[in-house]
Amino acid sequence: MMEKNKKRHTILVIEDEEPILRVIIEKLSLHNFNTITAGTIEDALNTLQDEARIDAVWLDHYLPGGKSGIDFVRAIKKSVVWKHLPIFVVSNTAGKDKIKQYREMGITQYFVKVENHLGKIVEEIETYLKQAV
């Protein structure tokens, strides 16, 4: 009997809207992900300092505290440790300029919340991480 060494990936979910955060965590857990949450960019950056084991980031754009998703990506890309961390931006902001800016900074994929099934986004993250390993 072959025991599949199922690796549990850890996702850092940066989202401030409570109900949405809860349903994302629920779905990710059902797909065998560990989750850590942060409600602001500050919290997220602090979490990265403390937690070494993060495999991917689920990032919203509009967040409280003065900094937006773009500031987070900028900070990550400067860090030697985290600049290759896969970033999945999941936001309801679909402004062309914003999407262009995110893509130019090198995020992994951009999803517009209302245009996507939650399950589909989770599956795509799953597929990406499986391929990456």
């Binding site: 994302i24 754009h61 902001t93 402004g95 914003k98 209302v114 099934h117």
Partner: peptide
């Protein structure tokens, strides 16, 4: 403004969408 309006209008819609989907 349009970006922010987009976010504010779509957030509750996403909530309804995803919970219903679940």
């Amino acid at each position: 403004f349009v970006s922010l309006a987009s976010h504010q209008l779509r957030t509750p819609l996403s909530t309804i969408n995803w919970y219903t989907e679940m």
